[in-house]
Design a protein around this nucleic acid. Structure first.
Length: 139
RNA sequence: AUCGCAAGCUGGGCAAUUGCUACUUCUGAGUUUACUCAUGGAGUAGAGGAAAGUCCGAACUCCAAAGAACAGAGUGCCGGGUAACUCCCGGGGGUUAUAAAAUUAAUUUUGUAACUACGGAAAGUGCAACAGAAAAUAUACUUUCUCAGUGUAUCGAGAUAAAGGUGAAAUGGCAGGGUAAGAGCCUACCGCUUUGUUAGUAAUAACAGAGGUCCGUAAGGAGUUCCAUUAAUUUGGAAUCAGUGCAAACCCCACUUGGAGCAAGGUCAUGUAAAGGAUACUCUGCAUGCAGAGUAAAGUUGUUCGCUUUAUUAAUCCCGGGUAGACCGCUUGAUUCUGAUAGUAAUAUCAGGGCUAGAUAAAUAAUUGCCGUUCCAAUUUAUUGGAAUACAAGAUUCGGCUUAUAGGCUUGCGAUAUCA
RNA sequence: GCGUCCGUAGCUCAGCUGGAUAGAGCACCAGAUUUCGGCUCUGGGGGUCGAGGGUACGAAUCCUUCCGGGCGUA
């Protein structure tokens, strides 16, 4: 796996994986409430992280939505080493989507507007996974 | 030079690092030796003028073939262009505004600009609120005029549709004659209808004639206006230059039109699963399960006709279950650029050159530096600092239309200022 | 992607074969009743008929272009 790459195998491509994240995933919000993330563990044992950016249709027009998705992907690509170390067997499925931001508030959105929130979300996910693993280990 | 309007064009540039998609190629691995897989390397390419809205038109695919009739839908001045069009180009008519000329005024003519779904209202049906006497079969409120009566300013009988008033709209307009008063009742001009000639492919335009009553070159016969109706102008029936507007009301006429759409459609893989149900009825012939006929059902994406199918291990459909994968379709095309020729133009033809995204929870990005363009502030007057840099992103592909759009460039027209 | 339907008062809807004050229920306001409140009765306010353009004497209604929203479709 490239240290700063984001190839096809690191993205969610299948429809049933998307619906699995939506139905059984756990939701967390960033500290500034700008973004939210949904994550869960998949069934296969590839030992990778798969992400997908999801933007609701009402947040802006196609140009803005495309740009936000690219910014999510870029900021994850630069900071994905936070989560790589703790993944051992199960595939981690992760969806990032905007919570309170839309085109009216940020007509010209740039990377620094979302990168800190993405780092915040990745840290929270890391902590939750580690605490859950400790509980199961104790039991 | 500035400002405004209209039309057309353009839609920031260069570099570095990291990353994504497709293709080519190298390296490595696996084997079926030409395919697959890589934390691999290198190279090339990677959103628009509207990609948008999905408002029209096609290509392409399937529905047996794409057949007939009707219904339905669409289009609607004329000609041309095109694969086709609710598109484009050219021409004509109309409406509105404005300027000039004619003119006592109203109006007319000419020019310019904008708009124009612009076939038929005399095939038929329907609608026309309020107001008004009367709204499509016309009719008579106030007048005006005649006659008769008398109480001399009113009533009665009749004539009239010019004037007033209503309305969006009142049976052509206006002037003169005529008359008791009036009326195409008659006349001139305008308008309208129609015939011919000329120009034009045509829409149409220009010119000449005819048509509102006098006799005829048309068959009808005589005058004039209206309805009934008869003791009276006396027989008959309406008419002879328009009987309003609305067809983006129904409709009529002419032309066009089968339906569905790339989630079309095809191949492969996975999989319930050799699962279950349905595929009818009647008659005739015989060799007793075949043939023929009829009904019925299903399909033919509105209806009818026509056509196809209706059983013995096969096919079709229904129900239930499963997969929501891969590949083809998928990008060389009514293609684009340059030049020549034809044409007023849209466009067409010819010659030469170019290849320019094919993604699929969906690639074309992020950061930084330098330079552009516009605005603001500061001053060292050409520098510094700050801000802004639009609308918006393919999803089978083309031709249009519509809508959004910072800034810049070109051309034309108009206004203002300055100089010669 | 393709195909379809709908926008009327704060809310839910009528009116849409053109005709003038756009109507009903709930909600709101005022008055009456009540010691007060509710129920009830009486009265009132509130609409650029999603936006622009056109046809027509006249448009919520007909035509057309946009804007917003819903539904269906393998």
């Amino acid at each position: 796996m490239k240290r700063f790459g984001l190839s096809k195998s690191e993205r969610i491509k299948k429809k049933n994986e998307i619906s699995r994240v939506f139905n059984s995933g756990k939701r967390i919000y960033s500290n500034s409430r700008k973004l939210k993330a949904i994550f869960c563990f998949g069934e296969d044992d590839s030992g990778t992280i798969k992400i997908v950016p999801a933007v609701y249709k009402k947040t802006g027009n196609a140009v803005w939505r495309n740009r936000v998705k690219r910014l999510f992907r870029e900021s994850y690509r630069l900071n994905k080493n936070i989560l790589i170390d703790i993944i051992d067997e199960k595939t981690l499925l992760l969806m990032i989507s905007p919570n309170s931001i839309n085109k009216k508030k940020y007509p010209h959105i740039v990377l620094n507007d979302v990168q800190d929130d993405v780092i915040d979300l990745l840290d929270k996910i890391k902590n939750q996974i580690l605490t859950q693993r400790e509980k199961t280990g104790n039991l």
